[in-house]
């Protein structure tokens, strides 16, 4: 169980305080998939980076239950592979220091096999297509057998067909290994297809939390799926309530979001 308690993050940008995240509280039950959806600059990447330990919250705290911190795997929007290592080397990148080399290689091959790239172990990142590179990144995140898997718009740069296939693969992997998954996306359809819970963020604030109680794999044309999509879209595109209408400083993207914004 992972729990965010009143998480807030603000930056000082010149004279203005930029609020990237304001008072986000949420529990991520063990083995669940939560998707976080919102437009660019809503604070979703900041939330994920805090969960990943890449940034510290300026207020609130992160509570990780069950005997301390387990392993965390992160998949970023770009594959972020080390260009000097082949696919296998990249998957093994985070493993080497805790495992003997032979065992690390065996595990890494198994992880590559899981994402369907067993034949490309020797390929260098420059030789891989976007989808293949992202598969390697997923294998790299999975190989440590994380109990928390964080994904930041991992399929946003992929074409629609590849994206659909990868969504299916992610669900299959989740069903097989049951890590706790937090998946950030700006695509409402993707959020509904993958999430057991969908967290809606707008200007750093939680504007909705929607349980999606449908069996996997889900069909994007399914009526129930579309019902959820409509409801979430309505909430995200509604004019903000007066008390939340901060100045321009609040609505501008946080530095962390700018980094991955297209």
């Amino acid at each position: 169980m992972l729990e965010a308690r009143h998480l807030g993050k603000s930056y000082r940008l010149g004279e203005a305080d930029v609020v990237a995240l304001a008072d986000v509280s949420l529990a991520f039950p063990r083995g669940s998939i939560t998707t976080v959806v919102g437009r660019s600059g809503c604070g979703k990447t900041t939330l994920l980076r805090i969960l990943a330990g890449l940034e510290r919250p300026t207020s609130g705290a992160l509570v990780r239950g069950e005997a301390g911190a387990g392993r965390t795997g992160v998949v970023f929007q770009e594959a972020r592979l080390m260009p000097w290592l082949d696919a296998l080397g990249n998957v093994a990148f985070g493993l080497r220091r805790r495992l003997p080399a032979a065992l690390a290689e065996e595990r890494s091959r198994a992880a590559l096999d899981m994402v369907g790239l067993a034949a490309f172990a020797d390929a260098m990142p420059g030789q891989l297509s976007g989808g293949m590179a992202q598969r390697v990144a997923i294998a790299r995140a999975l190989v440590t057998e994380p109990d928390l898997l964080l994904l930041d718009e991992p399929f946003a740069a992929l074409d629609a067909f590849t994206r659909r296939a990868m969504q299916g693969e992610l669900v299959a992997i989740w069903q097989a290994k049951r890590p706790t998954i937090v998946f950030v996306t700006h695509d409402v359809e993707e959020a509904v297809l993958l999430g057991q819970h969908v967290l809606e963020l707008e200007r750093g604030r939680v504007v909705g939390f929607e349980p999606v109680d449908l069996p996997f794999p889900r069909d994007p044309t399914d009526a129930a799926v579309n019902g959820h999509r409509r409801r979430i879209l309505a909430k995200l595109t509604a004019p903000p309530p007066p008390h939340a209408a901060g100045g321009p400083a609040v609505s501008s993207a946080s530095p962390a979001d700018k980094e991955t914004a297209p």
Binding site: L54, V74, F76, R80, G94, R97, E259
Partner: peptide, 21 residues
């Protein structure tokens, strides 16, 4: 910096980040 993030996620020390990334 994005490659360094990968090392941070794996809990690399400063030395490891220097040598391996």
């Amino acid at each position: 910096r994005k490659l360094i993030d990968v090392g941070t996620v794996y809990g690399f020390s400063r030395t490891e980040i220097m040598l391996r990334i």
